[in-house]
Amino acid sequence: MTTMTETSPATAAARAMLPEHGTSLGVPNLKLAFWTFLGSECFFFGTLVATYLSYRGKSLTGPYPADVFNFAVTSISSFVLLMSSYLMVLALAAVQRGDRGKTLAWLFGTALFGLIFLGFQAFEFTEFYAKGLTLQKNLFGTTFFVMTGFHGAHVAVGVLWLLSLFVVAWVKGIPREKALNVEVAGLYWHFVDIVWIVIFTVVYLIPDPSKGA
């Protein structure tokens, strides 16, 4: 934290020191773009959740949520995803420190936790299907599978992204000045996590008013 105190006014200095020519807000374009994108994603998942809530308890036939949910499994998978966010911040901190070994370890760990979450989701979907819940069966099946499916697809993209970063870090390393690339991946990963925080609460924890088991 030396440069900021040496030069003044801070914004002009920051601008002059940025790559390319300086940016108006003194923040990197990529990160600005990414937060904008996340604002957009709020609407994407907001609409999916709204669809789920609009039809909550309105299925005409079973299976209803209470018939299929396996509480323990989902709690564990939710916890795994939550902890992957923790590994993600450790990975970013390692990149920013220039600690290559830890970078590799935590990046891989995050991706692995993401894969475990996806595994749980695959298991859950299979179980539900076996219990008669399909995409077409009722409103619950339709809204549940599509919403959690899109979340799962986001996790899968995130895993692919993290593994790509892992390979880059493995092959040629990620220098500290490229830490932004990891930071942005982290923002995406955390966002996927907070979406699950909402889904876990709204879908699994709050009891569904449907009749059924």
Binding site: F37, F43, F44, G46, T47, T51, L139
Partner: peptide, 23 residues
Amino acid sequence: VLSFPIITVGLIELLLDRTVGTN
């Protein structure tokens, strides 16, 4: 950026209704 995700979800839902048989 804020309104297109809404129609995107709506379109995906309609597309799934039409091609996969959701409700």
